[in-house]
Amino acid sequence: MASLPIDNQIRRLRFEHGEMTQQQLAERIGVTRQTVNAIELGKYSPSLEVAFRIAAVFQVPLEQVFQYRQGG
């Protein structure tokens, strides 16, 4: 499967926010733990709404969570 051209910093942000678990993040943004895992591993691109919710949980701008890989 081709990897998505979007990188993310979710794992690092979770670690910096009191070692938040995938389950805790999933509950706060209204998805399953498996979906958080798929986003973290770059297997699934979330909708804009979920992306903004993740950024809101970590209180950072969206571009600090997701980065588009040019030419990826």
Partner: peptide, 11 residues
């Protein structure tokens, strides 16, 4: 608890 969780966008 897992079974009660509504379907998310990926599912």
């Amino acid at each position: 608890k897992d079974a009660r969780t509504p379907k998310d966008e990926r599912e």
